[in-house]
Design a protein around this nucleic acid. Structure first.
Lengths: 193, 193
DNA sequence: AATTTTTCTTAAGATACCTTAATTTTTTGA
DNA sequence: TCAAAAAATTAAGGTATCTTAAGAAAAATT
């Protein structure tokens, strides 16, 4: 259950056995059925969350009821409404399982304790967040400089594994286009894919 | 010279006097004339950088020579091609002074030493990066869900201080629109501003 | 296997934003 | 203080993407 988490941490920092035990004890599993919500707008987000299995989406719904997907997550990814988590304010996003999933989560208070007990954990989250920031910055550049077709092509190339378990209309939302437009793009790309 | 930096760090974590001295010694000032480059595509980015005065932009230039501004920075902001800094690869972005500026910078090697000497520094950069991530995520959502006019209006409301020292065509680039379109938007907004 | 629900496709008309190009205004530097 | 450079405006025509609406295909449920 906890192996992917420990492996994920050990990719970036060194933990001794006692520390591994501390971490394993602190993270509790949550299982989610397809379409089940992990987080809904207005709730507090008191946990840091790691995806141990499955696939989830983090998204916003605007006043017109339109859904904007900020992030997909699969096994080995971290997912949260970080602003709500850090500020203790109610979340503005939703997190929902796209397929049956397992999430490991730790309460903010316990994680903050762990930061003092395991110095390397501060470092781990620093590096993780830095990497996430870099990826998001790249997405920002691409959303400004590339056409929808280019963005779709790059998404498929980069996230083949995800693409297979995610419906097309969600990918469209992630790319910032309508499902209808993505459909036309796919038709036009034809054999090039 | 170093006060804004120390203040910036002390907003988030506690440093004792010895640690303050260490930090002040480690960060070296660089002065930049308006339009001078701090970083150009292809160079390595071996320093973490803090803006002590002035205003700079971080941007990409695509094959067609078009400029896409990823970030503005003023006094009290951090600025870097984080990917290049972390990966040791050549930078893909440019950093250029918009007005005369002063930057405090520390070499990666020295900063990594400091992470071991001052545990709170790991935490400082973790929190800083988390905040940056949250801000970037919000920008992503807005670029998907808002019109150019809404984005401009929010930019002006949020970054009044910046807006005054930055030419309009750069703000257009940051917002992902053409200078011509921003001009029309301003005309249409008219008295509403 | 049949039915319902979800997802994907197609197409026509609408619109936000872009491109190009010329002109005006503002800022900079000699 | 004037000339040159940089920045902002205007406008016409073009294009990427959206909206709406309907139907087809695929997947889930009974």
């Amino acid at each position: 259950m906890h192996e992917p988490l420990i492996q994920n941490i050990k990719e970036l920092v060194i933990l001794n056995e006692a520390e591994v035990d501390l971490v394993e004890e602190a993270f509790k599993p949550i299982t989610l059925k397809k379409k089940q919500f992990l987080l809904q707008k207005g709730e507090p987000s008191n946990h840091m969350r790691f995806i141990a299995a499955g696939c989830l989406k983090l998204f916003e719904i605007d006043k017109a009821g339109r859904e904007y997907i900020l992030q997909f997550g699969i096994k080995g990814w971290w997912m949260n409404d970080l602003y709500a988590y850090l500020s203790l304010k109610p979340v503005t996003y939703f997190i929902q399982a796209i397929v049956d999933s397992v999430v490991l989560q730790i309460h903010r208070d316990r994680l903050n304790e762990l930061f003092n007990e395991i110095h390397m954990l501060d470092r781990f989250f620093r590096i993780k967040t830095q990497n996430g920031y870099v990826a998001l910055q790249e997405r920002t550049i691409h959303s400004m400089s590339q056409t929808a077709e280019e963005r779709y092509y790059n998404f498929v190339k980069r996230y083949r594994i995800m693409e297979q378990q995610i419906p097309q209309y969600m990918i469209a939302s992630y790319l910032g286009i309508t499902p209808e437009h993505l459909s036309t793009i796919r038709k036009n790309m034809g054999s090039r894919l």
